[in-house]
Simulated assay, not measured.
Amino acid sequence: MTDRIHSIDSVRIIAMAFVVMIHTDPFRGLGMYGNMVNFTIDSTARFAVPFFFMTSGYLFARKTADRDPAAYLVERTATIVSLYAFGLALTVPVFLAGTVVLDGAENGDPVGSGVRQLVEFLSPLELLYYGDSVSVVLWFLPALVFSLLLVHTFAQAGKTAYLVPISLAFHVVGLLGTSYTMFVDVPFEVRDALFFGFFYTGLGYYVGARDWRPKTDRSRVYLGATGLFGALHVGERYVLGYVVTGETLSQTVYAASYTIGTALFAISLFAFLLSRPGLGRGTPLPSWGKYAVGIYVTHPAVLHLLERTAEVLNGMGYEVTTTLLWHLTLTPATFFGALLVYLSVREVGALRDGKTPFSRPRSDRNRDPN
């Protein structure tokens, strides 16, 4: 299993870089060619979140093959909740400060703006289930917790044979509610555990529980399928965003998240990684993979700070957000700035191995973090 973890870890940090690019929107608004590049990057990057869900489901299955699944679920949930709490603790002050300084200055009521923003942050359903009350970026963590819980429920009931078809049925509803709204109006939020994360996590679990090991001599087939389905995914999004709507790339960038092609793209990539055990060994990529989750939870605050700074500069007459330099530097500044923040927090002992001190056993807290 260690070899297969190497290949997954090698892609994990790359996938996280794509997640950051989804949020930084490089080259968007810089004319038709800028929008074209942004559309291609954004479409390609959509494999990343499904990949993380599948990886979590796969590891859940493999790591509970010879241990109590419930105990592992509790341990994993504690880690994810701890990371979510850390992300909120980092993001809330930054977002509140931005609201008070900029929005408050516009309406002359900075205190009122801050209080209203804080009330929105505490909305129970959005905070605890959808994960988007503070930053929509953090939705993945609550979705992962509930997705793992759903998968565990099927496993405990001995109904894993129904796991993929049932989760797929929910995912189809999710797709109809996001990318295929021209067919049906889904009147509720579908970017959550039930309609999105459940399918990919369940699929990863199903593969892991059966210890499927694609043959190495077929890795080129899986790689070719990845390229083919990746191109299909980009083409499908183009049809949905421009052919169906009549819009053009010079006008806008299609922003809907996931499609049928996304699943085929992500699944074929995952199969390729499993067929190439040890991929990335001898490179820095596997060791960088362990920082992916840290970059994820810290980059919303870093990105918000950079964007608010740009807004201030724009207000002073320096239109930095319309320059090529801004679009070239925002993604690396966000990525490495988030990494720096995460490493700094780890260095002072506030976070270790993805957990805050309060989520670790008491005996563990007394150990030297070095």
Rank of each mutant, 00 (worst) to 15 (best):
G227Y: 00
A225H: 04
V348E: 10
R191F: 15
V145M: 07
S250D: 11
L90A: 13
V312R: 06
F229E: 05
A169Y: 10
D368G: 04
P300L: 12
R67S: 15
I260A: 07
N38H: 08
L176R: 02
K159N: 10
T323S: 15
V92M: 15
L163G: 10
A333E: 13
S123H: 15
T245H: 11
G235N: 06
V243Q: 14
T331E: 07
L351P: 10
R346G: 12
V94Y: 12
A105F: 11
V134G: 11
K159E: 09
G114I: 04
T322Y: 12
D42V: 02
A292M: 02
F52E: 04
F196G: 00
S219A: 15
D9A: 09
A292Y: 02
V145E: 05
W212Y: 11
E75G: 15
R210Y: 08
L102C: 08
L102G: 06
M1I: 08
W139D: 05
I22M: 06
T298H: 07
R218A: 04
T99D: 14
L285D: 08
A45N: 02
H327W: 01
L83M: 11
R367H: 01
N35R: 12
R62S: 13
G34F: 05
P187K: 07
L73Q: 07
R12C: 07
V253T: 05
R220E: 10
L240E: 06
G317Q: 13
V341I: 14
S257Y: 07
L306D: 08
G158H: 13
Y206E: 01
F86R: 02
A65Y: 03
F27H: 00
V243P: 09
G246P: 13
Y206C: 01
R218W: 01
R213F: 06
G261H: 01
L232G: 07
